[in-house]
Simulated scan of single mutants.
Amino acid sequence: MAHQSEIDERVRVYYGGLFDEDARLTTRSAQGPLEHRRTQELIAEHISTGRVLDIGGGTGIHARTLRERGFEVVLIDPVPEHVTAAAASGVEALLGDARSLPFADGSFDAVLLLGPLYHLASREERLQALREAKRVTRAGGFVFAAALSRYVAFGANVLGRSVRSDAALRALWEQGVPLAGDRFPAGHFHTAEELAEEVADAALEVLAVHGVEGPSGLALEGVPADRTDLTEAALVLARATSAEPGIRDFSAHLLAVARVG
């Protein structure tokens, strides 16, 4: 397992210049708009007004959508380039870390944690981020916590390739440990059940864990973003299978919806 300080630095380098996070959710492929729309739908099922903290909010795609719906949004991210881009688009944005938030207890009606968990290698680090999200959310408010599917990560490394059995693949399958050498600075891959467990262990009430894009989301990775017909079809399937055990793990992204007691 990589040391967390190494992953933190790789996150800054990756998102600071190697990868365009803004394009990922908008123009890179049809998968991005699918992920964005379905995530926003799941959020809208639980909140309709208030103050929202977007932790690890990148360039502000989700923050801007929420602002357009009338929310007051604050974005915090560890990548300076993301903070600059978000602020330039009109989002209140500041540099910071999910594990130590510069906000008072109960400052927000809802918190989005849509990226940090899958860049944190140890369970304790992830619990720290979840506890911080809970701390700054008022009683009765909501926390939306995303993770990357372990099944999808495993499939990406074995399907269509020569069959192999080694300790690294076993660690990925059994423990969610990323394979060494990947450009993406992953810290951990979750199962839906493990994500629910960690959120509950942070003293949050888990309402559901959803597969965001649904089982056809991965197919849209190679489809142009303007194929809205295919996005709409994928949305129908994603909605129908969203919380089905097993099927939800075929989504690249998992989303836990939790409430603060």
Results as ranks from 00 to 15, higher is better:
Asp182Thr: 12
Asp229His: 04
Leu95Cys: 09
Leu254Phe: 06
Asp182Met: 13
Met1Gly: 15
Glu124Cys: 02
Val11Phe: 12
Arg10Cys: 07
Ala180Gln: 12
Ala186His: 14
Glu35Asp: 15
Ile61Glu: 07
Ala192Ser: 15
Leu159Met: 13
Thr228Asn: 06
Val257Ser: 01
Ala93Gln: 09
Arg67Leu: 00
Ile76Tyr: 05
Glu45Phe: 02
Gly217Ser: 06
Val79Pro: 07
Val73His: 02
Pro185Thr: 04
Ile47Met: 01
Ala256His: 01
Val73Gln: 05
Glu197Val: 07
Arg99Cys: 04
Gly70Val: 06
Phe154Asn: 05
Asp8Arg: 14
Arg67Asp: 00
Asp77Asn: 11
Leu169Trp: 01
Phe189Gln: 05
Pro102Tyr: 09
Ser216Pro: 02
Pro102Gly: 11
Ile7Arg: 07
Val236Tyr: 04
Ala93Val: 11
Ala104Leu: 10
Phe184Thr: 13
Gly32His: 06
Leu159Val: 15
Arg259Ala: 06
His62Ile: 00
Ser216Trp: 11
Asp22Phe: 10
Val13Glu: 15
His3Thr: 11
Ala233Ile: 05
Leu207Gln: 10
Leu172Pro: 00
Ile55Asn: 05
Arg138Val: 14
Ala168Ile: 04
Gly141His: 05
Glu174Pro: 02
Val209Asp: 08
Ala168Thr: 04
Thr59Gln: 02
Val111Phe: 03
Ala145Lys: 09
Asp8Ser: 14
Phe142Arg: 12
Arg64Ala: 00
Arg248Met: 01
Gly50Tyr: 02
Phe71Ser: 00
Ser107Asp: 09
Val223Asp: 02
Leu114Met: 14
Val206Pro: 09
His46Asp: 05
Gly160Asn: 12
Gly70Ser: 06
Ile43Ala: 01
Ala208Phe: 06
Val257Glu: 03
Gly56Cys: 01
Phe19Lys: 06
Asp226Thr: 09
Val236His: 10
Gly106Ser: 14
Pro102Lys: 12
Gly17Asn: 03
Asp54Gly: 07
Ala171Thr: 00
Ala168Lys: 07
Leu204Gly: 08
Glu9Asp: 11
Leu18Cys: 08
Arg131Tyr: 02
Val212Thr: 07
Leu130Asn: 07
Phe250His: 12
Glu198Pro: 00
Ala2Ser: 14
Leu25Trp: 12
Gln128Ala: 15
Ile43Asn: 02
Asp166Val: 03
Tyr14Cys: 05
Glu232Ala: 15
Phe108Val: 03
Gly57Glu: 00
Leu34Asn: 03
Arg170Lys: 13
Arg135Ile: 06
Ala30Thr: 04
Arg38Gln: 15
Glu213Leu: 04
Ser162Glu: 15
Tyr151Ala: 13
Leu113Tyr: 10
Ser122His: 14
Ala133Asp: 04
Leu94Asn: 08
Val236Pro: 02
Phe250Thr: 13
Thr84Tyr: 08
His3Ile: 11
Ala208Ser: 13
Ala219Asn: 07
Thr39Val: 11
Ser122Gly: 13
Val91Asp: 03
Ala93Ser: 14
Arg126Met: 10
Tyr14Arg: 09
Glu41Pro: 01
Met1Ile: 08
Ala238Asp: 07
Ile61Phe: 00
Gly160Ala: 12
Leu117Ser: 08
Leu254Pro: 01
Leu75Pro: 03
Arg248Ala: 03
Gly115Ser: 15
Arg164Leu: 06
Leu179Ile: 09
Ala252Asp: 11
Arg183His: 10
Val212Lys: 10
Glu213Pro: 05
Ser122Arg: 15
Glu41Thr: 14
